[in-house]
Design a binder for these strands. Structure first.
Lengths: 191, 191
DNA sequence: CGAGCACTTGATCTATGTCAACGGTAGTGG
DNA sequence: CCACTACCGTTGACATAGATCAAGTGCTCG
């Protein structure tokens, strides 16, 4: 783990959870995230990574390489991901498509802000809802990754997830190839 | 205060601190923020405003109106602001300009995230640095607005600002027309 | 000069952090 | 196929940063 790169050989842009997608300050191209969840980190000079942002299906990653020639953040896959190169074909520099991406980015920023404010339980629930598919199924990142995203501690996340499970807000399900403690179905409809 | 709108008569797009720029779900056009700091809020159905995002000089506001026909967030001026309509002239739907805005938006999201994590003092200092001009001068928003941005309480902000002043990290200065408790110069260089 | 905010400050409470020990899962190598 | 081991997650006991509650004080503007 933590070795594969999107530019390396991979099966049709599929990357496993935990994989490094690209490194900060490395050269490369942009990507469209088709499936999965990606974590972006600011890399301090001393090599310390601090959570910077989140990308979910549909988002554009690394568009800044078109401007600066290299990536600003480090990107790692939090769940299994599928990426395709961006810009591509006629969609390319289409300004209508860019406008949509800009509006999406501003919406995503607001969602991220919401995940870092208020009660701990609400933050975790907010993230779970953000990551859930239409059927209410989620493959959660590790407790530590959830903690980094919500600015809480992994022990706190562990307690909250367990409590949500006990109160039947979420229900553990098994998905092949996914760690037993990470796949859930929402017990209640997404509001 | 809290009454003027950007679309109303105003002197050359200048708005005073506290002014409403536009309301969520209202129709209108996009804006380029030329000077000042703007707060964006998510408006719940019950009229409750929750902080969603921050815009600083150079940012584009309300670009989603081109897609949806109305604003997603409510925008209010935290300091005196100057706005110009967007898109405008040749800059218009230029995809290079949109790409820059997209990269900026992603950078801004990361900065916002950083303002909501870690020690309270670091968050406030981070915001002060984000808002300071090149000379290290800042007109701070109200304690309550700083609290909403950093997800702290205004009493906590008050204590922290006072402590920064006493430890000479910041120094109060007087600016005409600005409340005595809000204008500061950084006592230490911006790292 | 007086009213209304915005800010300051003290005392106390509590949600979450911290530290520590242990348990379970899954990947690895014999 | 099993044993080993490295993570990852769970749980308890205790500490603390910041929240909350409660008076004040001092700007600004009318």
């Amino acid at each position: 783990m933590r070795a594969t790169s999107a530019t390396s050989s991979n099966n049709q842009g599929h990357l496993p959870a935990g994989a490094l997608i690209y490194s900060a300050r490395a050269p490369g191209n942009g990507w469209r995230l088709r499936e999965g969840v990606v974590r972006l980190d600011n890399m301090a000079n001393d090599g310390l990574a601090t959570f910077a942002s989140l990308a979910i299906a549909g988002d554009i990653l690394g568009c800044e390489t078109l401007l600066f020639g290299c990536y600003t953040f480090r990107a790692t896959a939090l769940t299994q991901c599928r990426l395709t190169p961006w810009p591509e074909g006629p969609e390319a520099a289409d300004s209508a498509s860019l406008l949509t991406s800009l509006a999406n980015a501003q919406q995503r920023a607001a969602e991220l802000v919401a995940l870092r404010g208020g009660q701990a339980t609400d933050r975790v629930l907010g993230l779970i809802r953000l990551l859930a598919d239409q059927a209410g199924r989620v493959v959660l990142p590790t407790r530590q990754d959830i903690a980094d995203i919500t600015d809480l501690r992994f022990e706190t996340i562990s307690r909250i997830v367990k409590q949500l499970e006990r109160s039947e807000m979420i229900r553990s399900i098994r998905i092949n190839g996914v760690h037993a403690t990470r796949s859930f179905a929402l017990g209640v409809a997404i509001p």
